[in-house]
Simulated assay, not measured.
Amino acid sequence: MQKPKAKIQPKAKMQPKAPGEWTTGLWGCFSDWGNCITTLFCPCITYGQIANIVQKGKTSVFTEARNYATIMYFTGGCCLYSCFSRSKLRHKYNLPQSPCSLPDCAVQFCCELCALCQEYRELQGRGFNMAIGFDLNPTDEDGMINAASINQVLTQINTLTNQDGTTNAAPASQVMTQADTTNNHQNDHHDDYQE
């Protein structure tokens, strides 16, 4: 007797999520002074970090920052370039157009620096470490921060073991030896200046 073949059911379409909320407002620039100052004097760095994460590491922070700086220097139209990343970010997290339901390009055009700071804070608020880029942040297939991956990485770091189950202290001792060598080398130079 043959078993009846199971019918492959089509995947149900996902219903759109209810609109999310931005973790901070457009005018909250001063809640992160470091990013505020960086964005004020070198917005290309902030944009590069945002674009790298929003594009799931397909381009480097350097490449995006360079592109932004080039467009800013030669045309002044960097707001048009950066509005695409804002749109991707909004769609990824189902965020409303804000403030006042303005389109992304209008927000970027009128308040470029505040918008970049808000996008940066949004990604930070969702668990991304902006300083290390997309590739080193533990993410799932959708490019979202994955708590299970974070725990897995921490477990791997904390339990360096050999195949036989014994703790492998060699990497830690090598790191300590390198640190001691660096400190001794710095102290040697420090002594030269004191004489």
Score class of each variant (00 low, 15 high):
Lys3Met: 15
Ile8Glu: 13
Ile8His: 14
Lys11Tyr: 02
Ala12Phe: 02
Ala12Val: 04
Lys17Asp: 09
Cys29Met: 10
Ser31Arg: 12
Asn35Tyr: 14
Asn35Lys: 08
Ile37Phe: 15
Thr38Glu: 15
Thr39Gly: 12
Thr39Gln: 13
Phe41Gln: 01
Cys42Asn: 12
Cys42Trp: 13
Cys44Tyr: 11
Ile45Val: 15
Ile45Asn: 08
Thr46Pro: 12
Tyr47Val: 00
Gly48His: 01
Thr59Cys: 07
Ser60Thr: 15
Arg66Met: 08
Asn67Gly: 08
Met72Gln: 14
Met72Tyr: 11
Tyr73Gly: 13
Phe74Arg: 04
Thr75Asn: 14
Cys79Leu: 01
Leu80Gln: 11
Ser82Thr: 00
Phe84Asp: 01
Phe84Glu: 07
Ser85His: 00
Ser85Trp: 00
Arg86Thr: 00
Arg90His: 01
Lys92Glu: 00
Pro96Cys: 02
Pro96Gly: 04
Pro99Arg: 08
Val107Asn: 03
Gln108Val: 02
Gln108Glu: 15
Cys110Gln: 07
Cys111Leu: 05
Leu113Ser: 15
Leu113Met: 14
Cys117Phe: 04
Cys117Pro: 02
Gln118Ala: 10
Gln124Cys: 10
Gly125Ile: 01
Arg126Ala: 03
Met130Ile: 02
Gly133Gln: 02
Asn137Trp: 06
Thr139Asp: 00
Asp140Met: 02
Glu141Met: 09
Ile145Ser: 02
Ile145Val: 15
Thr155Leu: 06
Gln156Ser: 12
Thr161Glu: 14
Thr161Gly: 07
Asn162Val: 04
Thr166Cys: 08
Asn168Ala: 11
Ala169Tyr: 13
Ala172Gln: 11
Ser173Tyr: 09
Gln174Arg: 12
Thr177Leu: 15
Gln178Met: 10
Gln178Thr: 05
Asp180Ala: 13
Asn184Ile: 03
His185Ile: 00
Gln186Met: 14
His189Arg: 13
Asp191Ala: 04
Asp191Thr: 05
Asp191Phe: 09
Asp192Asn: 06
Gln194Tyr: 06
Gln194Ser: 09
Gln194Ala: 11
